[in-house]
Amino acid sequence: MKKDWPCVPVNLQNVSPNAMRMARLMRMSRRDMLMTGMGAAVTYGVASGIAGAEETQPSPASGADPVATQFMAVSRLLTDRPTLDLRIGNAIYAGIVQSSADRQAQISKLHDLMGSGQFTSASAFAAAAEKADPALKDVIHDIMTGWYRGVADGKVVVYRSALMFDITKDAIYPKTYATGGPFYWTTQPPEVDRPTGHPALSPSKFVVEPT
Protein backbone atom coordinates (compact mmCIF):
# COMPACT_ATOMS: atom_id res chain seq x y z
CA MET A 1 0.00 0.00 0.00
CA LYS A 2 1.27 3.45 -0.84
CA LYS A 3 2.74 5.25 2.13
CA ASP A 4 0.64 8.38 2.08
CA TRP A 5 0.26 8.75 5.79
CA PRO A 6 2.81 9.06 8.56
CA CYS A 7 2.46 6.62 11.41
CA VAL A 8 3.23 8.38 14.71
CA PRO A 9 3.14 11.08 15.73
CA VAL A 10 0.38 12.52 13.61
CA ASN A 11 0.30 16.25 13.24
CA LEU A 12 -3.41 16.78 13.44
CA GLN A 13 -3.07 20.33 12.19
CA ASN A 14 -2.08 18.97 8.81
CA VAL A 15 -5.51 17.48 8.37
CA SER A 16 -7.56 19.99 10.30
CA PRO A 17 -10.20 22.20 8.72
CA ASN A 18 -8.29 25.06 10.26
CA ALA A 19 -5.13 24.16 8.38
CA MET A 20 -7.00 23.83 5.14
CA ARG A 21 -8.72 27.15 5.70
CA MET A 22 -5.46 28.84 6.57
CA ALA A 23 -3.81 27.44 3.47
CA ARG A 24 -6.61 28.78 1.35
CA LEU A 25 -6.53 32.17 3.04
CA MET A 26 -2.81 32.39 2.52
CA ARG A 27 -3.19 31.59 -1.16
CA MET A 28 -5.88 34.21 -1.39
CA SER A 29 -3.64 36.57 0.49
CA ARG A 30 -0.82 36.16 -1.99
CA ARG A 31 -3.09 36.48 -4.96
CA ASP A 32 -5.41 39.24 -3.95
CA MET A 33 -4.20 41.10 -0.98
CA LEU A 34 -0.46 41.34 -0.56
CA MET A 35 -0.79 43.66 2.33
CA THR A 36 0.53 43.49 5.80
CA GLY A 37 -2.69 44.03 7.72
CA MET A 38 -4.40 40.99 6.32
CA GLY A 39 -1.51 38.78 7.29
CA ALA A 40 -1.43 40.10 10.81
CA ALA A 41 -5.16 39.91 11.36
CA VAL A 42 -5.85 36.54 9.85
CA THR A 43 -2.71 34.46 10.03
CA TYR A 44 -1.94 35.18 13.63
CA GLY A 45 -5.48 35.78 14.80
CA VAL A 46 -4.63 39.17 16.29
CA ALA A 47 -7.75 40.41 18.00
CA SER A 48 -7.48 44.12 17.59
CA GLY A 49 -10.05 46.18 19.41
CA ILE A 50 -12.95 47.45 17.38
CA ALA A 51 -13.99 50.44 19.41
CA GLY A 52 -12.03 53.51 18.49
CA ALA A 53 -9.80 51.72 16.01
CA GLU A 54 -8.12 54.08 13.64
CA GLU A 55 -8.77 53.16 10.07
CA THR A 56 -5.65 54.86 8.87
CA GLN A 57 -3.21 52.75 10.87
CA PRO A 58 -2.60 49.72 8.68
CA SER A 59 -1.49 49.86 5.12
CA PRO A 60 -4.61 50.36 3.05
CA ALA A 61 -5.59 47.85 0.43
CA SER A 62 -7.16 50.56 -1.59
CA GLY A 63 -4.09 50.98 -3.75
CA ALA A 64 -4.66 47.54 -5.14
CA ASP A 65 -8.43 47.60 -5.29
CA PRO A 66 -10.50 50.81 -5.18
CA VAL A 67 -13.64 48.82 -4.37
CA ALA A 68 -12.02 47.87 -1.07
CA THR A 69 -12.17 51.54 -0.07
CA GLN A 70 -15.77 51.70 -1.21
CA PHE A 71 -16.46 48.63 0.90
CA MET A 72 -15.28 50.41 4.03
CA ALA A 73 -17.49 53.43 3.33
CA VAL A 74 -20.51 51.24 2.66
CA SER A 75 -19.74 49.22 5.81
CA ARG A 76 -19.61 52.33 8.00
CA LEU A 77 -23.05 53.36 6.80
CA LEU A 78 -24.54 49.86 7.10
CA THR A 79 -23.28 49.50 10.68
CA ASP A 80 -24.12 53.05 11.75
CA ARG A 81 -20.53 53.29 12.96
CA PRO A 82 -18.13 56.16 12.29
CA THR A 83 -15.04 53.93 12.38
CA LEU A 84 -14.31 50.30 11.63
CA ASP A 85 -11.11 48.29 11.75
CA LEU A 86 -9.49 48.45 8.33
CA ARG A 87 -7.51 45.23 8.69
CA ILE A 88 -10.62 43.27 9.57
CA GLY A 89 -12.51 45.10 6.81
CA ASN A 90 -9.94 44.11 4.22
CA ALA A 91 -10.20 40.48 5.24
CA ILE A 92 -14.00 40.55 5.18
CA TYR A 93 -13.96 42.24 1.79
CA ALA A 94 -11.58 39.62 0.41
CA GLY A 95 -13.85 36.84 1.62
CA ILE A 96 -17.01 38.41 0.24
CA VAL A 97 -15.45 39.05 -3.16
CA GLN A 98 -14.15 35.49 -3.20
CA SER A 99 -17.59 34.07 -2.42
CA SER A 100 -19.37 35.24 -5.55
CA ALA A 101 -18.47 36.76 -8.89
CA ASP A 102 -21.20 39.39 -8.48
CA ARG A 103 -20.16 40.76 -5.15
CA GLN A 104 -17.49 43.25 -6.19
CA ALA A 105 -19.84 44.96 -8.67
CA GLN A 106 -22.64 44.92 -6.11
CA ILE A 107 -20.44 46.64 -3.54
CA SER A 108 -19.65 49.32 -6.12
CA LYS A 109 -23.33 49.64 -6.85
CA LEU A 110 -24.06 50.14 -3.16
CA HIS A 111 -21.34 52.78 -3.05
CA ASP A 112 -22.82 54.58 -6.05
CA LEU A 113 -26.25 54.51 -4.43
CA MET A 114 -24.76 55.87 -1.24
CA GLY A 115 -23.42 58.85 -3.16
CA SER A 116 -26.75 59.49 -4.82
CA GLY A 117 -28.72 60.26 -1.68
CA GLN A 118 -28.50 61.69 1.79
CA PHE A 119 -28.84 58.59 3.92
CA THR A 120 -28.73 59.25 7.63
CA SER A 121 -29.03 55.65 8.82
CA ALA A 122 -28.15 52.10 7.90
CA SER A 123 -31.81 51.18 7.79
CA ALA A 124 -32.75 53.95 5.36
CA PHE A 125 -29.86 53.04 3.10
CA ALA A 126 -30.50 49.30 3.17
CA ALA A 127 -34.20 49.75 2.42
CA ALA A 128 -33.38 52.03 -0.52
CA ALA A 129 -30.79 49.56 -1.80
CA GLU A 130 -33.20 46.62 -1.78
CA LYS A 131 -35.82 48.77 -3.50
CA ALA A 132 -33.31 49.78 -6.18
CA ASP A 133 -32.16 46.21 -6.76
CA PRO A 134 -33.52 43.24 -4.77
CA ALA A 135 -30.28 41.36 -5.41
CA LEU A 136 -28.43 43.84 -3.19
CA LYS A 137 -30.09 42.28 -0.14
CA ASP A 138 -27.73 39.33 -0.34
CA VAL A 139 -24.58 41.43 -0.38
CA ILE A 140 -25.91 43.49 2.53
CA HIS A 141 -26.42 40.20 4.41
CA ASP A 142 -22.84 39.28 3.58
CA ILE A 143 -21.58 42.60 4.88
CA MET A 144 -23.58 42.26 8.10
CA THR A 145 -22.40 38.68 8.52
CA GLY A 146 -18.82 39.77 7.95
CA TRP A 147 -18.74 42.51 10.54
CA TYR A 148 -21.11 41.13 13.14
CA ARG A 149 -20.33 37.39 12.97
CA GLY A 150 -16.76 37.77 11.72
CA VAL A 151 -17.53 35.34 8.91
CA ALA A 152 -17.03 35.82 5.17
CA ASP A 153 -17.29 33.24 2.42
CA GLY A 154 -18.28 30.69 5.05
CA LYS A 155 -14.99 31.10 6.90
CA VAL A 156 -14.03 32.77 10.14
CA VAL A 157 -12.22 36.07 9.55
CA VAL A 158 -12.25 37.11 13.20
CA TYR A 159 -13.90 35.48 16.19
CA ARG A 160 -13.37 37.42 19.39
CA SER A 161 -13.33 40.76 17.52
CA ALA A 162 -16.61 40.20 15.69
CA LEU A 163 -18.96 43.11 16.43
CA MET A 164 -21.56 40.76 17.96
CA PHE A 165 -19.22 40.35 20.91
CA ASP A 166 -18.39 44.04 21.11
CA ILE A 167 -22.04 44.93 21.66
CA THR A 168 -22.63 42.19 24.26
CA LYS A 169 -19.36 42.47 26.18
CA ASP A 170 -21.01 43.99 29.25
CA ALA A 171 -22.91 40.73 29.74
CA ILE A 172 -21.19 37.74 28.19
CA TYR A 173 -17.87 36.40 26.89
CA PRO A 174 -17.13 34.77 23.55
CA LYS A 175 -16.88 31.02 24.08
CA THR A 176 -13.37 30.00 25.24
CA TYR A 177 -12.52 33.60 26.25
CA ALA A 178 -14.21 33.96 29.66
CA THR A 179 -12.23 36.13 32.05
CA GLY A 180 -14.71 36.60 34.88
CA GLY A 181 -13.22 33.91 37.10
CA PRO A 182 -15.01 30.93 38.66
CA PHE A 183 -18.73 31.38 39.30
CA TYR A 184 -19.01 34.81 37.67
CA TRP A 185 -22.13 33.37 36.05
CA THR A 186 -24.21 33.46 39.24
CA THR A 187 -24.52 37.28 39.17
CA GLN A 188 -27.31 39.17 37.45
CA PRO A 189 -26.44 40.36 33.95
CA PRO A 190 -27.84 43.64 32.54
CA GLU A 191 -31.51 43.97 31.62
CA VAL A 192 -32.24 44.56 27.95
CA ASP A 193 -35.25 46.54 26.81
CA ARG A 194 -37.41 45.24 24.03
CA PRO A 195 -36.18 46.85 20.81
CA THR A 196 -38.37 49.35 19.04
CA GLY A 197 -36.61 49.41 15.66
CA HIS A 198 -37.85 47.75 12.50
CA PRO A 199 -36.18 45.56 9.90
CA ALA A 200 -34.88 47.45 6.90
CA LEU A 201 -34.83 44.51 4.52
CA SER A 202 -37.45 41.93 3.65
CA PRO A 203 -37.12 38.84 5.83
CA SER A 204 -35.19 35.79 4.66
CA LYS A 205 -35.66 32.20 5.72
CA PHE A 206 -33.63 31.53 8.84
CA VAL A 207 -31.75 28.33 8.29
CA VAL A 208 -30.01 26.80 11.29
CA GLU A 209 -26.90 25.05 10.06
CA PRO A 210 -26.98 21.30 10.57
CA THR A 211 -24.48 19.94 13.03
Binding site: A122, S123, A126, M164, T196, G197
Partner: peptide, 18 residues
Protein backbone atom coordinates in the same frame (compact mmCIF):
# COMPACT_ATOMS: atom_id res chain seq x y z
CA UNK B 1 -29.71 39.39 10.04
CA UNK B 2 -32.18 36.98 8.48
CA UNK B 3 -35.04 39.12 9.78
CA UNK B 4 -33.63 42.03 7.79
CA UNK B 5 -32.10 44.24 10.46
CA UNK B 6 -29.03 46.38 9.81
CA UNK B 7 -27.01 48.96 11.72
CA UNK B 8 -28.22 50.27 15.07
CA UNK B 9 -31.45 48.26 14.90
CA UNK B 10 -29.46 45.08 14.25
CA UNK B 11 -27.34 45.74 17.32
CA UNK B 12 -30.45 46.21 19.46
CA UNK B 13 -31.83 42.93 18.16
CA UNK B 14 -28.59 41.05 18.80
CA UNK B 15 -28.57 42.20 22.42
CA UNK B 16 -32.23 41.37 22.90
CA UNK B 17 -32.17 37.97 21.22
CA UNK B 18 -28.88 36.99 22.90
Amino acid sequence: ISKGYVGRELEEQIRYLS
